[in-house]
Structure formats: C-alpha cells, structure tokens
Design a protein around this nucleic acid. Structure first.
Lengths: 205, 205
DNA sequence: TCTAATTTTGACCATATGGTTAAAATAAAT
DNA sequence: ATTTATTTTAACCATATGGTCAAAATTAGA
C-alpha cells in the first residue's frame, strides 16, 4: 500500500533519473548522481527500482512514448488532408522538442546502443505507420502532390523537424552567434519547415 | 625512432579504437575491448596512447574531420552555382555516410556529451561556413531561388542528408521490411533529396 | 500509546575498469 | 656475438560503481 511520502520519493527519483539519463545516456549516467539529484540515499534507488537497468527501462519507455506527436485529429476522420498531416506532424514535433530538446539525441543514441529492443518498443506504442503512409499515398493518387515514395516524404518531414535539435550544438556554433539565437530560429522554424515541404510537394501550375 | 612493427601496432590499435568508440561512444567503450579487437595486451594501449581520453581524442578528431564533405570545387571559382552547391553537399554527405554510417550518431552524441569542445574543433577543421552562406545569399539576391534565411537552407540540406543515417534503426523498423531494404532506399536518396530541395527553392514560373 | 509495517540510511561487498610496473621478448646497433 | 634500445606481456593496483544488508527512523494501525 502506497502512502503520500512513497509517491513523493518515487516521483523525485523518476524526475532525477530522467534528467541524468537524458543528458548522459545509460552508460554515462551514475546511480550516485541520480541519488544526489533526487536528494536521497543511493540504496533507496534500489529499494524502489531494483537495478539501474530497470530504472533506465522505465525512463526510456516513458521517453519513447513521449516522442511521437499525436496526429489522431488528422488520421481519425477518413477525409485526411495531406497538408493537415504535415502541419500536425511538424507542429507536433516542435511542441515536444521545444519542451524536451534532449529527447531525440537520447532516443536515437540508446536505440543505437541496443537496436534489438525497437520491435518491442514500437509495438507498445500502438503507432500505426501504415495510416500515415496511406494519407500520403491517397494524396499522390488524387494528383494533389508530386509523385514520390510516400516513405520518402515521411522521412523528410521527420528529418527536417528533428535533426536541428540533435545537431543544435554544432549548428548553432557554426551559423549563429549564440545558442539563444539558434533557439529563436528553432521557434520560427515550424512555419518555415512547413512551407519548405509544401513548396516541394505541390504540383506546378 | 619508429620501425615497421611500431607502425603496424599503432595502426591496429587505431582501427580497433575506431570501431569500438564509434559503435559504443566514449562512456560505453572499454579499453579491454579495444585491446582484444586489436589482438594485443591492454597495457600496450597505454604504451602507445597514455590514456583512454588521449586515445579517444585522437579518434574523435579524425572522425570529426572526416565528417565534412569537400565542396571546394564549388566554392573555389567565384562563380558559384547554388544547384552545384546543393548537389555537392548532398552527394558529399552520402559518399561519407554510406561508407561510415555510424559517424553522425557518434559525432553528435559525443558533442552532446561535452559541447565545450566544439569551438576548438571547428577552428582546427578550417571550415568556412560564411562562404557557403554567401553562395546561398547571392542566389537569393540574384532572384534565382525563393527568399529565405540562407542558414535555413543549409540546415535543411544537412538535416535531410544526415538524419536518415542517425535514425536508421528506427526508420527502417517502422517503414521498411529490413535494414537492407532501407539501405537501398538510402542509396537512391541522393537523387531524390536533391530534387526535393530544388523543387522547394526554385521560383514558380 | 504501543506495536507492526514501511521507508531511509550508512556501512559494506564484489566486481569492473583505467592505469602502472617490472620483467620478458624482440629488434637494432656495435 | 654482445650489448642496447624498443616493444610486449602478465601480474598488480587504486578507484569507481552497481548493488546488498542490517539497523535506524518514520509512518500507519490498534
């Protein structure tokens, strides 16, 4: 039976673990640092979460499920508009990543470390990539956009949305005066990316 | 004075370190594993490279300098064509990344781990981002392409070229039958990315 | 208030890991 | 051939790290 203090401590641990794991990854993270960050004894971590792997697994699954923008509004109604899909995807990613900029680097880094877990993870998210593909394919069949592999468009949308956050330190150093200015650029970007994509896929008159 | 065996061993170590560090990152890599991979005693690593940090630094600098496509052909002559720039950049990245797919994940991961090193690294590469920006700006001023922040176009080119390699395990699991098929997709991609970008920036008639 | 259950801690353990050292093996110099 | 310099190894060392445990502190239940 859980009481109030129980919940508090568990939450403090999870928040601390989240900060540390996301910034340093599984290999770089230290249980001691997580304990310090949470303001508790290291043994408590094991009391609540058995092992580093178990704790990490909890954090990672949570992070992974937060990684996907919700586009049900677009996919639900049968009459899916391709432009709405793009707008929802780009805005969805921007919303998530402005709030948690470390998320994508963390996810791809950890997936790279143990790729065998992907299948399981994807299943538990209940994502339906086929639905997204179908929307794109329908738009192509209807002649609304140029002909292309639907997967290519998806990859491009995702690339344009996510990569600037992964490459933030590098890009901001090369082309901006400061990371703050780069962040301003990122804020504007949801508009410009959307336009960039639409210009490319709309047929010429 | 170095003799032949010396060179051999050093090279074997560097190759082994390269494999291990690129796949596992600094924190995940083990000196023992590098030694095994190189077929030598662990103490030899320290004989040749003092410490893990020193060895890593050597590998990382090498990796970082390999990360940039050579676009001098385009930038050298004053008459820089924007389309040539895009083609050179996309093809340059594809050439590099088809050969070393782990490179971008490694670089961005390690830069994330210690961002303070970037300035120094960038200086030692002798890259000139301004030149690239100027080519884009000139094309805009000449009315060849649509108006936009030149940095935005650069970021888009880089994102579209690099991200699919970073997100390979995830993307291939979601939208392809196997990683092999995804790799075929990546091979074709240098054409389609180029076209995708050009369609977006060329002015409508 | 008194007891039982739960939570928290400090001290400890086993192992992994980066690093060192002295001696053995090999190559170079004479 | 003998000596000297260099390369390689096995055996260690110190420390960091994930994890455990018994006791103390706290909370819940009677």
């Amino acid at each position: 039976m859980k009481n109030k203090k129980d919940q508090d401590t568990e939450q403090k641990i999870l928040q601390a673990a989240n900060r540390v794991f996301l910034k340093k990854g599984y290999e770089g993270a230290r249980m001691q640092e997580i304990a310090n960050e949470a303001g508790i004894n290291k043994a408590l971590l094991h009391y609540y979460f058995r092992s580093k792997e178990k704790l990490f697994d909890r954090i990672f699954r949570e992070a992974f499920s937060n990684f996907w923008p919700s586009i049900e509004k677009v996919t639900k109604g049968g009459n899916a508009e391709i432009k709405e899909l793009i707008e929802a995807a780009v805005n969805g990613y921007m919303d998530i990543l402005e709030d948690k900029p470390f998320l994508p680097a963390f996810i791809v880094g950890e997936i790279n470390r143990s790729p065998e877990r992907i299948k399981d993870l994807l299943l538990s998210t209940g994502l339906q990539p086929e639905k997204v593909l179908k929307i794109v394919q329908d738009a192509i069949d209807a002649g609304e956009i140029v002909e292309m592999d639907p997967r290519e468009l998806i990859v491009n949308i995702v690339s344009l949305s996510i990569f600037p956050f992964i490459g933030r330190p590098l890009l901001s150093s090369m082309f901006w005066e400061s990371t703050e200015e780069f962040d301003l650029f990122l804020k504007d970007r949801r508009k410009t990316v959307y336009e960039f994509i639409c210009r490319s896929i709309m047929k010429r008159t």
